[in-house]
């Protein structure tokens, strides 16, 4: 998982999750991204590099503010550009599924 993807996943996670669950969710997202078809993974990675370039540069000079990321993700979520919208949707779906599955009682009764 690329640096920016890790930041996005961390931002998308519910703030109430404990450290163990956060780590499990991040690990699940990393595993799923790794096992995606090559062409889809390449597309997601390319978007991460393009969309994350500003954050990465800020990080390199010690000025990255993770608190600014939620607003940026909100903008991308409603972007008119389909791949940008889908980028956030993909990562959000993986995070959402994992944190709800890891929550107690994910399944149900027969």
């Amino acid at each position: 998982m690329l640096w920016f993807e890790r930041q996005v996943v961390s931002t998308l996670m519910s703030p109430t999750l404990d450290a163990g669950t956060r780590s499990a969710v991040e690990s699940y997202v990393a595993t799923t991204l790794h096992s995606m078809p090559e062409h889809l993974r390449a597309g997601v990675a390319a978007e991460s590099i393009v969309l994350g370039s500003r954050s990465w540069l800020e990080h390199r000079v010690g000025r990255f503010d993770p608190h600014a990321l939620p607003a940026r993700l909100d903008r991308w979520r409603s972007s008119k550009i389909d791949p940008i919208r889908q980028y956030v949707r993909l990562l959000h779906s993986l995070v959402l599924f994992a944190e709800n599955e890891f929550a107690a009682g994910a399944g149900g009764s027969m």
Binding site: T31, T32, S35, F97, A98, E101, A106, G107
Partner: peptide, 16 residues
């Protein structure tokens, strides 16, 4: 379950 998706689904279920 999530565990089943990881173990049994192609690409962990992330195909499109």
């Amino acid at each position: 379950s999530l565990e089943e998706m990881v173990a049994k689904y192609r690409h962990g279920g992330s195909c499109a």
